[in-house]
């Protein structure tokens, strides 16, 4: 669990930019990098680790698209069910784009992707006040190569849990 120490160091260094709620496994703009430490065990259905790793906290998109595939909705159905069973969490849906495209366009494209996931989760019963969206555009790639292998993983929307029930 070396990651715990690393993660807490990073959190310490970035305390100034922290949001009002603790975001799990997503310190300042790391954009839902896979493998970040989140609480609990992936085999404990109540844990954020289960949400992140067992259910899957992200869905991927085709080039320049924000429509949800059947594979995406299958994951999002489970995300929605988990969120409804675990009211002590809220979530921020992060939209991301690959590095093809301009900065501005990709910000808008990431917003579309985040919104598609957000709307779907609401449709599945998650209270709207438990969800927020943000776009990172192409600012936070997960994979750093410049080929489609990486791009495909970077065109994503990640549902990042935050501890604390919705307050409004």
């Amino acid at each position: 669990m070396k990651r715990i120490a690393m993660a807490s160091l990073v959190v310490g260094a970035l305390a100034l930019s922290a949001c009002s709620k603790d975001r799990l496994g997503d310190e300042y703009g790391t954009g839902g990098l896979g493998g970040d430490y989140v609480a609990g065990s992936p085999s404990d259905p109540k844990s954020p680790a289960y949400f992140q790793q067992t259910i899957g906290d992200r869905v991927l998109f085709a080039i320049d698209q924000s429509t949800l595939s059947a594979e995406n909705t299958e994951i999002l159905n489970k995300q929605a069910a988990w969120l409804m069973e675990n009211p002590a969490y809220t979530a921020i849906v992060e939209g991301h784009a690959d590095e093809q495209g301009t900065r501005e366009y990709n910000l808008a494209l990431g917003a579309r992707r985040a919104s598609a996931v957000n709307n779907y989760l609401i449709e599945r019963g998650v209270a709207p006040n438990r969800l927020q969206t943000v776009s990172y555009g192409k600012e936070r790639p997960l994979e750093i190569c410049s080929t489609e292998v990486c791009y495909a993983k970077n065109r994503r929307a990640v549902t990042v849990l935050a501890a604390g029930a919705a307050t409004s």
Binding site: L107, A108, R112
Partner: peptide, 9 residues
């Protein structure tokens, strides 16, 4: 400027 709301910019 650009403003995104509900996924629309």
């Amino acid at each position: 400027y650009s403003l995104s709301m509900g996924g629309n910019t």
